[in-house]
Design a protein around this nucleic acid. Sequence first.
DNA 1: TGGCAATCTTGCATTGACTGCAAAAATGCA
DNA 2: TGCATTTTTGCAGTCAATGCAAGATTGCCA
Lengths: 211, 211
Amino acid sequence: MAKNKRAETTEGRRERKRRQTRERIEQAAMTLFLQRGFEATTIEDITEAADVSKRSFFDYFPSKEEVVFAWQDAFADRLMAAIAARPAKETSVAAVEAAITATVIASVDEPGLALGELIHRTPALKARDQLKYAKLEQKLAEALLLRKGGDPLERPRMRVLAAIVIGALRVGAELWQQRPPSVSPQDFAREIFADLWKMLAEFGDEAKTRR
Amino acid sequence: MAKNKRAETTEGRRERKRRQTRERIEQAAMTLFLQRGFEATTIEDITEAADVSKRSFFDYFPSKEEVVFAWQDAFADRLMAAIAARPAKETSVAAVEAAITATVIASVDEPGLALGELIHRTPALKARDQLKYAKLEQKLAEALLLRKGGDPLERPRMRVLAAIVIGALRVGAELWQQRPPSVSPQDFAREIFADLWKMLAEFGDEAKTRR
DNA sequence: TGGCAATCTTGCATTGACTGCAAAAATGCA
DNA sequence: TGCATTTTTGCAGTCAATGCAAGATTGCCA
């Protein structure tokens, strides 16, 4: 089973082969998924293409779905790091904008883009995809709270801010996928955030003057 | 298979028995799920308890998960209706608040409350649960857009408003589940929304005066 | 270099969700 | 009562996922 490094030494043949096998499975799976769809691809198809036994697949990935989402953990980790890196005196709003923009830009070229459509047309994957956003939101909320010194009273506030921002990220990702990116990711992100804050202010004012 | 009424006449013996069977399955499933967990309950356990054949289960529900989430469609439909019922001259912000509050209040006594914990501790259900919110959000966005006469330029705006409000609903539902409801649902909803709009205004102002 | 111990890979068997199909049972109606 | 329609069921089969133990590989050291 998956065990880790014995010492902190360099990667031995064992580790290397294992990583290579993992990549071979991932590659084979993705190719087949994109080519003939997620459900229409069986584990056996994948293991055959990757030339490993059917049983071994589960030694590398806990489930078929995980192959698709494995790479996405990286995004959440980067975002956390980006948040933590913002100066403490910066407002939460400024910090998320900067952190998300930076993380998105740093991640925009990854295979994830091609996956969007696959996920979108596969119900089981769609559910898992949403879960990913939920986890991201929770992590973001924690990171934001930490910046505030962990004050428990700030928690609901940061939860809501996280929900708003991740919501915007989700909507933004959708818009991005729909139209061919005629602008740079930077400009796109900037635009999205500008719109978002403007809307927030409007909605807020609207509620303020209401009743 | 599931066919509908032949004419608009009253419910015959056939329809009635079918509905009863469906309820029996649902009841048996829920009892077992809550009692021994989702994964630990097999379809056979359920059908045995409900006294139908294993095969028949799938004549009533497309999957094990659907039993859990079937009732939730009702919420989305009610919310849509509530939005549509708001006067057209009302602002979007005022309309969602009123509609959501009314719908939540009308739905708060349903079995859903007991399910929260079950869903929370079952990964597969958690994913599906998030998908539910996503769908709700989309429907809400459509309903809001419709109120605006369907102007395509308003779409992203309404998508974001929907994301924000559903985000607040999600966070609110979580808070509600955590602490014993010491206040009425009405007051709780009012409070949540008041906080939300206040936060929006603050975040908006903060962004406005920034840079 | 040979051999041992740790680790990986694989085959085999099993469970459980889900589907298709056709026979059998129940129901509605003339 | 008899027949057409609908429902329920049994059965066979596919596929994901898991446990287990035998077989192969690898790292290491005497």
